[in-house]
Simulated assay, not measured.
Amino acid sequence: MTRLLRVELRRLFSRRLVVLTMVGTLAVSLLLLWGVWESSQPMSEAELASAEQMYQQELEYWEEHGEADRAQCLEDEAAEAERTGEEVDWGCESMTGPEREWYVTTAPPLQESLPFTLAAMSTLVLFASGLIGATFTAAELSTGAMSTWLSFEPRRLRVFASKMSAAALGVVPAAALAVAVVVAGSSLIANHLDLAAGMGAAQWGDTAWMALRILGLAALGALVGGALGFLLRHTAAVLGLVVVAFIVEQMVRGLVPRTAPWAPSVNVEGWVQHGTVYYLEECTSDASGMMCDYTERALSFGHSATYLLVLTSVVVTLAAIAFRRRDAV
């Protein structure tokens, strides 16, 4: 099995599309760093002057009309409460004058921006890993090379296991390099612009764990892509299925929002971010009509991890059964 794995790893890195996908992933990670650089830039002198002018204008208006506007708001609020016979709160008491921070924006510190950058990177890594796994297995089936290979090693499950293991292991170095580039580049940019002061041991520890989860996601993506390659036999068919599945997921979530905990994309987010949240619209009816509000629901990392591991196991098992029982390869 070890010999087969070494052979499959060499075959993996000999495929041009695999190498191009890995290089493309690294190139996109550099583009992400360009976006980080742009979003980390402070406001220019002209932008600061314009923001200050807007702030002063709003402050002058508030000093002249603010108390009257708040009094009018309270009066209208009381009138509405009297008309409906219910308690009404329009937030009049919280009406205050403008603050300079509303107009003068600052770049987010590294401890806030880095998790979002890595989350964006994880989507790219997942797609690239799935594509590598799919083309690695589907190409040999569609070209007939698998038949030749089985004449040397007829034990199909060993061939299947070696190819799937090679796909999962082979994507990890490329994913690790891309993640390392993003983390190191974001850190250098933040240090250059004095945005890294808040990164302590706890924040770097969280970053390290997030990076490891992304590497695990890459391995899972390669396994699923490789399994779908065995099932569908064509890389284009795998890509088409992924696109259709994503569209169907979005439609189902739009029609039935309570299915969010079982949506693959939500659980991928929960895996990468060690738990996530989703929102459900809840509506109530009374004498004044229907009122709707969005409530936040938590999705734990344990739920997402179990979901993805079970989903991957099911797809891989189906692929192994299909490859084992298929008469013509």
Rank of each mutant, 00 (worst) to 15 (best):
T2W: 12
R10D: 01
S14P: 00
R16V: 10
V18E: 00
V19K: 07
T21A: 12
T21M: 08
V23M: 13
L30D: 04
W34Y: 11
W34R: 02
G35P: 05
G35C: 03
G35E: 09
V36C: 00
P42A: 14
A49K: 07
E52N: 09
W62P: 02
E63Y: 06
E63I: 03
E75A: 15
E77Y: 13
A79M: 14
R83P: 06
R83Y: 15
E86G: 02
D89F: 13
S94A: 15
T96Y: 09
E99Q: 13
E99M: 09
W102G: 14
Y103I: 06
T106K: 12
A107L: 06
F116T: 15
A119K: 11
A120M: 13
L126N: 07
F127H: 01
F127I: 15
A128T: 12
G130T: 13
I132E: 03
T135M: 01
T137I: 06
E140N: 10
L141Y: 01
L141I: 11
T143F: 00
S147Y: 02
T148S: 11
R155Y: 10
L157D: 09
R158V: 01
F160K: 04
A161N: 09
S162L: 02
A168N: 06
L169Y: 07
L169S: 06
V171R: 05
P173E: 14
A174M: 10
A178P: 09
V179S: 02
V181W: 06
V182W: 05
S187T: 15
L188E: 04
L188S: 08
A190V: 09
H192R: 14
G198R: 09
W204N: 02
G205V: 07
D206V: 00
M210W: 03
L212R: 00
I214H: 03
A219K: 00
L220Y: 04
G221R: 00
A222E: 02
G226Q: 03
A227I: 09
A227M: 11
L228Q: 12
R233C: 05
R233Q: 14
T235V: 13
T235C: 10
L239A: 15
V242C: 13
V242K: 01
A245T: 10
F246Q: 11
E249L: 08
V252T: 09
V256M: 12
V256G: 04
V266F: 09
V268M: 12
W271G: 01
V272P: 04
Q273G: 04
H274Y: 13
T276D: 11
V277P: 00
E282Q: 15
C283S: 15
S285H: 15
M290C: 05
Y294N: 14
T295Q: 13
L299D: 04
S300L: 01
S304A: 11
L308S: 07
V310E: 01
T312F: 07
S313W: 08
V316N: 01
T317W: 15
R324C: 07
